[in-house]
Design a binder for these strands. Structure first.
Lengths: 148, 148
DNA sequence: TTAAAACCTGCAGTCACTGGAGCTTCAAGC
DNA sequence: GCTTGAAGCTCCAGTGACTGCAGGTTTTAA
């Protein structure tokens, strides 16, 4: 067996992240240490690629590193109940939904700002005015993000 | 005139942020320094409240601090052309739209993950499986966020 | 053998705050 | 005037998830 043969750069290219990120994941214990050549360079096996791919995919879905850590641990032991993983995913989904709602409001307001610009001088500028006077926006979006 | 009379805590409450944030804005030069009491406590005037409100509102809309700095400068001199402010807002709107598109995809995938869970053991868990195997997601959302 | 590309460690920086330690000042009640 | 507790002060470190750099070493192909 000569399995672990992927240098860090090739691994990075293969999952679409950069090398510092991989070293960072190793440092914080998300990714198990690679084996090393005589000259101390990292060489990765297929199992690393799979785990890293899992992590990156989860990151793209917006999971935090602590959440991913837990998901990885759950994935490891295939016997345990799925409910915990479900709960994490559901939590994430709710966060995503909240964020979308918020962003939709922002989009609406920005569009309104840009549509209604009638002045070409700042003093009549809707963009500035809207920002200056919170009362000008139709919906109130005060409630505080609470997220991120 | 006894204008500047608002202590930092009251100002914070009135715009819905916390006091450290206000001190931070002063530190990075977004908010002009408040006048001080004999005992060196900050006292704010109405103009500060307006400016801070502008900043917070812009932050809620997703503007970065550098962008806000520029918008504030523009708002200051009411004579200049509005186009710059427009460009900033338009740029921001595009970013918001991209973000929404991305998040909609994430939401769809998370929902799919959660709907199709048939196993109650991790080894059959759709959540874990989806994360482990990128091929399982219908749309591809690889292109790299590029945003935020 | 040589040269360039890729790798290594260690540390600092990013963004927009947030939190804490340890101290001082203010305002209200007595 | 005195006390007390809330609110303020400065300075510094930490957050999350990386990213970038300096200065050196290893690998690989020509």
């Amino acid at each position: 067996m000569h399995e672990p043969s992927l240098p860090i750069g090739a691994l990075a290219r293969s999952v679409g992240c950069n090398v510092q990120t991989i070293r960072y994941y190793e440092q914080v214990g998300l990714l198990p240490p690679a084996s090393r050549t005589a000259g101390a360079q990292r060489r990765y096996a297929e199992v690393h690629r799979q785990k890293l791919s899992f992590i990156r995919h989860a990151r793209e879905l917006g999971f935090s590193l602590p959440a991913i850590r837990e998901l990885l641990a759950l994935a490891e032991e295939g016997d345990s109940e799925c409910t915990r993983a479900d709960r994490i995913a559901r939590h994430q989904l709710e966060a995503v939904r909240r964020r979308i709602t918020l962003l939709e409001r922002l989009r609406a307001e920005l569009e309104r700002m840009l549509e209604h610009r009638h002045g070409r001088r700042v003093r009549d500028c809707r963009v500035i005015a809207t920002l200056a006077d919170h009362g000008l926006c139709a919906e109130e979006h005060h409630e505080a993000d609470a997220e991120r």
